[in-house]
Amino acid sequence: MCGIVGLYLKNDKYESEIGKLFAPMLIAMTERGPDSAGFAVYGDAVEDGIKLTLRHEDENYDWAALAKDIETALDTKVNWFQNSKVAVFKVGVDAEKVEDYLEQNHDDVLVMSSGKSIEILKEVGLPERIVDMFKLGDMKGSHIIGHTRMATESAVTMAGSHPFSTGLDLCLVHNGSFSNHNRLRKELQREGIEFDTENDTEVAAGYLTYRLQQGDSLNEALENALKTLDGFYTLTIGTKDGFAVVRDPIACKPAVIAETDDYVAMASEYQALTTLPGIEDAKVWEPEPARIYVWERNGN
């Protein structure tokens, strides 16, 4: 099963309460995915440098010391705050430098996401627990995509839960399963893409990362994904400026979209949309199979 939800604001009317609007959407999908949940929120963007969501299994991990280490080693300024087991680091250099430094000197720190505005937060447990743990209700931003997981293809772990990072400010959530993920993983590994889990969605995420590295636009990468990924799926892709929705050509996995003057919302089921303001008068429809929908503030 699994549930997907996304909320993209077309203007700044609800930016200060996006978390409050999104939390009930994620919780409404509990029955579709009770074993883990996660979300990627876009907001609080950095102008220079990079924002990373870092994670350490020890809740008492000394993030201040890590910040100091990075400042000294990379000769830069670090602004950071902690949120449960994760910490958001804003660093004045590019992503690669920080990630290389962490890999070589602090390999117990996981990089969940990197970009100008993305933060990926996910955990095993009921969606309501994840909402509380990361204080989703207080979050501000322009868009959020989220996922509630009922595991089928791999173990119930934090690493196997969604969203998966697919590059700078990019992430992926998925409802369905892929049947060619093992072969595709091997092909991608030969191209230098690294994988942390046996999860099928991570392969799809890796595939998008690879296509984007090859110079594809997001649209081209998704068109290639439609040709390459075998299985059944509804995908939602978070980008710096908005999100995209794609369903496989058979479209067995559900999706519904609602649009008003203020937002575009997508969900696996309409139930997740009922708490949104003005939903009664929203345009509501089911996205067509094998069609790529993109909403972005600086694009369409």
Partner: peptide, 11 residues
């Protein structure tokens, strides 16, 4: 019987 949907129906 009769079922009437005033809006859109899914699959």
């Amino acid at each position: 019987g009769l079922v009437r949907v005033k809006g859109n129906a899914s699959s």
